[in-house]
Design a protein around this nucleic acid. Sequence first.
DNA 1: AACAATTGTTGTCGTCAACAACAATCTTCC
DNA 2: GGAAGATTGTTGTTGACGACAACAATTGTT
Lengths: 177, 177
Amino acid sequence: MARNSQAARITKSRAGIRPRPGRTRSGNGSVHNDLMNDEIGLDALAGHAGYAVRRFQIWIFQDFIRTLAAVDIRPTQYSVMTVIGANPGLSQMAVAKRLGIERARLVHLLDSLEHRDLVSRIKSATDRRSHALHLTARGRTALAQFKRLAAEHERHVAEKIGKENRERLLQILSAFT
Amino acid sequence: MARNSQAARITKSRAGIRPRPGRTRSGNGSVHNDLMNDEIGLDALAGHAGYAVRRFQIWIFQDFIRTLAAVDIRPTQYSVMTVIGANPGLSQMAVAKRLGIERARLVHLLDSLEHRDLVSRIKSATDRRSHALHLTARGRTALAQFKRLAAEHERHVAEKIGKENRERLLQILSAFT
DNA sequence: AACAATTGTTGTCGTCAACAACAATCTTCC
DNA sequence: GGAAGATTGTTGTTGACGACAACAATTGTT
């Protein structure tokens, strides 16, 4: 169903992070080509945190998606289930704020998870505007498996950048978690 | 022109990274609410590199966009101009590979930059399929200003996570640059 | 010369962030 | 107590972005 196909697509294009140019400059023998080696860079792109972070984020998400492809769970879905699992009864607003998701977006995410019988929206008795979010029984056992796979993904990260570097990175970015 | 309005939009919604919940759980007094404090978390979301990186990446891009809003340049546009500026004459394929962008996407990016007279596509004489990419005179002076603003953005990053942490992070992620 | 590969281009699809508008439902304040 | 304002979930739109597929023009290979 539409996401499986995408997961499959991503699984296909895989290997090292970026298809670093096997050969770089095409046949153009135009101006200013002082660097006759094969690397393009040395460019001023190094030293830009945003660029490195973006590339890393793409890599890490692709690995997450690939590692959890069998259960068809994407990072955002995982984070939603994790938060609900740890704090049953939260409203959609609360979950959205916690995860920095827009409540508009959460609607579709929950629709999907609810259709898969992983999460249930229970009408709150005290505030009839809001829904209390809970994992279903199936959702709870499923989440346990998701967490095992997520842990495997984290091991991939550690392999990629080093165990200590991963921990240092988590520490540096702890303010954003 | 369509992007200015978006930059303005982003500029508006601003402050600390995330609107951390002032009040958390809504009025629902439902099941399992063992934690009576105001924080939702303590959840298992800590320890997940991908989540922290995603949040950080969002923050850093928003700051970049905001800092360069006056010149209406987004991160991807900046990276394209930087690579072309450092390696004049590159083909679109070469730039796409270097930046991990699809060549299909680069077409629109270059269309935009070319319309703004920042970049020019010059038909290669040696390979008539490809275009040699160059900055225009206007593009060169513009890029110099962009780089000054980008440096200001980097200072924001350093303020946010600490100067040493920023450098450590750049070092950890250097493989992805 | 025939066939395969590459380059730029166009177009489609799905994800995602940001907004706006709306009905139903609290909350506040007079 | 009731009007005015705020909040919650929902629907829909826009734009940036990554992944793909198909195509014409051109180059490379055999």
